[in-house]
Design a binder for these strands. Structure first.
Lengths: 207, 207
DNA sequence: CACAACATACCAACTGGTTGGTATGTTGTC
DNA sequence: GACAACATACCAACCAGTTGGTATGTTGTG
């Protein structure tokens, strides 16, 4: 039978190369300033290939947002700290890792969907929605450890796990903006350091 | 005599209308997606007027960034809390005001220079620099009260005033991104609430 | 004051290059 | 030989910027 064959298991085709190129170019230039021709050139394929795989530039954006989510997943599984027993230590380990990632040129560590959402939130609902879903997925993954940390250690002022996770995401997105504007990744890391101190403060670490 | 007369005192000319239109449209659509024709239409002038006042679209961007700084200045002078005696209360009052401003459509409360910097940091040094200067001016103005609050109340971990001011800016920029992506200003306000709690925590309020 | 010389502010029509998208091949593989 | 995966050639709309011009000040000088 095999009525619905599984989709070709992530071979390195023009499709994935186009998405990778979009991740790179959009983070560097923004969505609107990035042309289809540029993406094709960076991917080493022609326009025919582009429009064979994606009906429009917008559809590539949506696909690239979904792929961005998949690309972030390993952050919650692979690093060493993810196997720590205390969920609060896992959370702080995650923040330390995000801080360490903020280095080198901004296009290397900034967020594809955050950049795209900013340009399209009012003019292209499909792209805003796709970006929003990717950010939401990150926050939901992070909130799991936050909730576990609350269960273990307790937290001040009845703060919710979701709220903390979204705040982490907010500080990261803000740090990316500041890194881009100032040209100084250290300014961005400094804010993540403030975020870490805040997390330590709201959990009752002593208990 | 009168060799260098002062420049015409801010009349409502095509120039100011074009800058206002740019502030509005760029915050809504981004810099690259906003066309000169759109700006002219919104300002109610022709393209001829545009290129009479600005040699290029880029020059308008630089002028609009400078004007954005001037537009933000009243935030540090006019509101009632700016006359409070305790600098920490002035700082918290400022944050409360920024939180209250996050309401309605995102293009109404988000940051022109933050948006522009994100799209141009790697491709247009003049616009990145102009945006950076505007953000820096905001942080320097804010740092004055932060330093006064440190002098009065003391602060944990030898945190510097500049670092706190930049963190405030970072959280605000991140809140704007989240508001745009999620379409929910409340998510953005929630992060500013976390920021407020952090500020309270790092100052030794009891002393 | 008068008036030429010049500057400023603005406009409508146009242009050369760019952009997203299309129409029509060609090629490799089951 | 059928079909997916590409490539080549092309187009209509759009975009930043230009051109040539008008209307309305402003200034220096007799």
């Amino acid at each position: 039978m095999n009525a619905s064959r599984s989709p070709a298991p992530a071979r390195i085709t023009a499709k994935t190369k186009l998405i990778d190129a979009a991740h790179d170019l959009v983070r560097r230039q923004g969505y609107a300033a990035t042309t289809v021709d540029q993406i094709c050139a960076a991917a080493g394929v022609t326009k025919g290939a582009f429009f064979h795989h994606f009906p429009s530039k917008e559809d590539l954006g949506v696909a690239a947002a979904a792929q961005w989510t998949a690309r972030a997943a390993p952050l919650f599984e692979l690093p060493p700290y993810t196997r720590l027993e205390d969920p609060l230590e896992r959370l702080l380990g995650h923040i330390d890792m995000r801080m360490a990632m903020i280095d080198g040129p901004a296009e290397g560590f900034t967020c594809f969907v955050g950049t795209m959402a900013q340009e399209t939130f009012a003019s292209n609902e499909a792209l805003r929605e796709a970006s929003s879903e990717s950010i939401t997925a990150y926050c939901e993954a992070l909130a799991v450890d936050v909730q576990a940390a609350i269960d273990r250690h307790g937290i001040r002022d009845n703060i919710t796990a979701e709220s903390v996770a979204w705040h982490v995401q907010t500080v990261l997105q803000g740090a990316f903006v500041i890194a881009k504007a100032s040209g100084d990744p250290e300014k961005a890391r400094e804010s993540v350091r403030h975020l870490r101190r805040y997390i330590e403060a709201i959990f009752n670490i002593s208990s």
